[in-house]
Structures are given as C-alpha cells and as structure tokens.
Computed example of a mutant assay.
Amino acid sequence: MWKKIKQILFIILILNVVFIIWGRFLNPPITITQIGGLFEYGKLQRDYISSEEMGNNVKKAVIASEDQKFFTHNGFDYTAIEKAMKHNEKGKKLRGGSTISQQTAKNIFLWQGRSWVRKGLEAVYTFIIEKFWGKDIILERYLNSIEMGQGVFGVEAAAEYYFGKPSKDLTASEAAWIAAVLPNPKKYDPKNPSPYLRKKHSWIMRQMRNVSLK
C-alpha cells in the first residue's frame, strides 16, 4: 500500500515538474478555471498571444488595478496580506492580498476557492514560478489566462469581446475598463458599468500614470 502511495506521489511530482517546465515556454493548454467557465457558460473565448502583441496600455491597467508592486516584490506583498488579514478579522467582506504572481499560480496550476490547502499550494507554486519563470513570463501567462468575463479569458479575448479590437489597440481608458472588472469578472460588465465600476475605472486611470513596465 505504502509503495503504491509513493509511486502515485512520484508520478504527481514528475507531472508537476513537466507542467512547470512547459509553462516556462508555452501557455497552458487549458486550466481548471477555464473548464469551469466552459461548463457554466457553454463557451471558452480566449486567444493566447505573446507579451509583445498585448500592448502597454492593458499591461499598465491590470498592474495598476491588481498589483502595483509586481516588479519589485518576490511574489508576495506582505503589506497587502497583513492589511487583508486585519480587514477580514473585523468580519467585513473578505478581501484578498494576492499578487499577480499568486493569482498566476492559482489560475494555471490550481482551482478557485479559499481553503488553506489551496493557499498553501499556491504559495509553493508562486515561489517556484518567481524563480524559474521570472516576471515577464508570469505577467504574460497571467494576462493570457485570467478570467475577464463570463467564459472570456485573457486580455486579447476581452479586448475583442468588449471593444471589438485587439488588445494592442486598446486606448488607456478601454484598458482600464477591462482591468476594472477584476477580481470579479462574472459580476461586473464594462458595457453596462455600475457606479462602483465607474469609480474604479477613474481610479485605475490615475494609477496607470505611476506604473512602469520594468
């Protein structure tokens, strides 16, 4: 029995190593979240593109919205995590402190949810991809795999879905609208923005001035 368990664990380890190496050079064939979106909405709209094809506006908008320390942290923003923990301890609406690196680890390798098991695995994968992939690849994988609408994944598919154009041609304002739906893309719609989404869009536009893609 123990021998079989060790064999299974070894196979899982090998598969993880292969998938991590694969991710260094290629986007994932499909993710658990994408499969979920396909079953829930009956479609999987995505279009993987290179970082160079994305254009700078959408990169700046998403970084401004999600993780302004992306290029300087080691995968974890401890200040944001501490603030999120204090906020959640007060019994208010749950707030996350995840970086783009952590979200990439979750989106590519894991599943959605808030269990301690998933968070622990997320931390391990985050550490590995920060060391093995590097920032540019992490950002490209994130922008290609992130859920950005009902059955819509990645910035290229989002640009086509919301504005009928490739992501490299998005204006700063259009890019900010796409970024504004994060982290609740199923709830918010740039085509019919709520007062909250309009306010967040304006905030992202201001924050984009402070983002440097280095």
Score class of each variant (00 low, 15 high):
M1K: 14
W2M: 08
I5C: 10
I5H: 08
I5D: 02
K6F: 13
L9I: 13
I12K: 06
L13P: 12
L15E: 02
L15C: 12
N16H: 04
V18G: 08
F19A: 12
I20Y: 04
I21Q: 02
W22H: 14
F25I: 14
P29T: 01
P29C: 04
I30C: 03
T31K: 08
I32N: 09
G36A: 13
L38M: 13
L38D: 07
F39C: 05
E40F: 00
G42F: 09
K43I: 12
K43R: 15
L44D: 11
Q45T: 13
Y48M: 07
I49M: 04
S50K: 10
E53Q: 14
E53P: 00
E53H: 09
G55H: 10
N56W: 03
V62W: 05
I63T: 02
S65I: 07
S65P: 02
E66M: 05
K69E: 06
F71D: 11
T72Y: 13
G75Y: 09
G75F: 06
F76M: 08
T79L: 09
T79F: 05
A80Q: 09
A80H: 13
A80M: 06
I81D: 02
A84D: 05
M85A: 12
K86F: 05
K86Y: 09
K86T: 04
N88K: 01
K92H: 10
K92I: 00
K93P: 00
L94M: 08
L94I: 13
G96W: 07
T99K: 10
I100C: 04
S101L: 01
Q102I: 02
Q103P: 07
Q103V: 00
F109T: 02
W111M: 12
R114T: 14
V117T: 12
V117E: 10
R118P: 02
L121D: 07
V124I: 15
I128K: 06
I128L: 14
I129K: 05
E130I: 02
E130S: 10
E130H: 06
K131T: 07
W133T: 03
I138T: 08
L139R: 00
R141S: 01
R141A: 00
R141N: 07
Y142C: 04
L143P: 00
N144D: 10
S145E: 14
S145W: 01
E147G: 11
G149H: 08
V152R: 01
F153E: 09
E156H: 07
E156G: 07
A157C: 07
A157D: 05
A159V: 04
A159Q: 01
A159T: 06
E160H: 15
E160F: 13
Y162D: 13
G164Y: 14
D169I: 00
A172C: 00
S173L: 11
S173W: 13
E174N: 01
E174W: 03
A175P: 02
I178G: 07
I178Q: 06
A179W: 01
A179D: 05
L182S: 13
N184P: 01
K187V: 15
N192S: 15
N192K: 15
S194H: 05
L197T: 10
W203V: 09
I204S: 04
Q207M: 15
Q207L: 03
M208H: 04
M208G: 09
N210S: 14
V211M: 08
K214D: 10
